[in-house]
């Protein structure tokens, strides 16, 4: 058989077999059979030695053409097969995307931590440093230095837990202010968050709760500055439209003293259950730092003035998240805790 016939035959065989190629495996086998080192086309090429030299160039051309034709043939089959196989794989691997996700459960911060951090970020942006004093205080820091001497009626406002004659669980974070003012000269802008304790236990009172106290002492500080800062605070924590209202009150360590209400963020001030129909919600106590307090800390009250404000973190959390019982905050029920997102 001459070479051209052989070529022809191979071509026919190839045409014949490609029809049956359904898998990559058979394709590979066919490739080996025709294009492999010991394949049929290679065998023809090897036979070139037997071809007379003058015919060799023409034969070479023919064989190369055959090789190229074969390769192209297989390539096209290969790409067709790949496409098919991909399709098949896709359909096999298809998943129900509506099935539940695999979740590694998120943890959650305690609501107090969320509020505390939110408050800290608001006030630290205004230049406040954070100071945390001891929870066990003596009479001086908790009362006397805050202008609340022994027989002062304001002591009755807070039921104090005593640990010894002169040691008690602080009833207010204001105690820490004195420690700051004793050691630091104005300008002072501090924020003291922390636990405080009062002998009270019902749905809205807990024997332990957290407060956040702010203190500013500098030259020329006014009541208007207090109002301005609290306006800003209220907007940031309760939302843009919230207004504040000051009304007279009394704390021994501030004069004048004010109670600060925010317009109800639930009803916009029209009156609802949250604000008990008044349109206002009491959120914190504040005032201009009493001269005696400054004096006691060695700060000249004729040169410096200041303001202080204090709020209950749980109260803010309860208002903001709509928690109706303070006890929930201390029970540690995971169904409660998991709801709080940063």
């Amino acid at each position: 058989m001459d070479v051209q016939d052989k070529i022809k035959k191979i071509e026919e065989q190839i045409e014949d077999t490609v029809k049956d190629i359904k898998t990559s495996k058979t394709l590979q086998e066919m490739k080996m059979r025709f294009l492999g080192k010991t394949g049929e086309i290679s065998a023809l090429l090897k036979n070139m030695r037997d071809v007379p030299p003058e015919q060799r160039p023409a034969m070479g051309k023919l064989l190369n053409a055959l090789r190229q034709w074969t390769e192209e043939k297989f390539d096209s089959i290969e790409s067709r097969l790949k496409e098919l196989e991909l399709k098949k794989r896709y359909s096999e691997e298809k998943i129900d995307v509506t099935m539940p996700a695999e979740i590694s459960d998120d943890g959650a911060y305690h609501p107090n931590t969320l509020i505390r951090n939110e408050l800290i970020s608001i006030f630290s942006g205004m230049g406040f440093e954070i100071f945390e004093g001891p929870e066990i205080e003596n009479d001086y820091y908790n009362f006397t230095a805050l202008n609340t001497p022994k027989d002062h009626p304001a002591r009755d406002m807070q039921d104090t837990f005593y640990l010894a004659e002169d040691l008690l669980l602080r009833t207010q974070t204001s105690a820490g202010q004195i420690r700051v003012m004793e050691n630091k000269k104005p300008p002072i802008k501090i924020l003291s968050p922390g636990k405080v304790y009062r002998s009270d236990d019902d749905a809205t009172h807990s024997p332990m709760f957290s407060q956040m106290e702010g203190l500013v002492v500098d030259k020329g500080i006014t009541l208007c500055d207090l109002k301005g800062m609290l306006d800003e605070f209220a907007k940031k924590i309760f939302g843009g439209g919230v207004k504040t209202r000051l009304r007279p009150s009394y704390f021994p360590f501030t004069e004048p003293s004010v109670e600060v209400d925010v317009s109800c963020f639930e009803c916009g001030g029209n009156g609802c259950r949250l604000c008990k129909g008044t349109g206002w919600i009491e959120v914190l106590g504040a005032g201009m730092v009493n001269r005696r307090v400054l004096e006691g800390c060695g700060i000249d009250p004729d040169e410096y003035t200041g303001f202080a404000f204090g709020m209950g973190i749980e109260r803010i959390a309860m208002l903001k998240y709509g928690i109706n019982n303070m006890k929930l905050l201390f029970e540690g029920d995971t169904r409660f805790l998991k709801q709080f997102k940063d």
């Binding site: 002072i188 802008k189 301005g228």
Partner: peptide, 30 residues
């Protein structure tokens, strides 16, 4: 300050307009 309180509680706290520490020194917070 007690006198100031007597005055403002009858003059009205509504008259206190918010200002933002215009005379205070800059402090670093955080």
């Amino acid at each position: 300050p007690d006198i100031a309180e007597e005055i403002i509680r009858f003059y009205g706290y509504d008259n206190i307009q918010g200002t933002f520490l215009h005379s205070a020194s800059i402090t670093n917070g955080g």
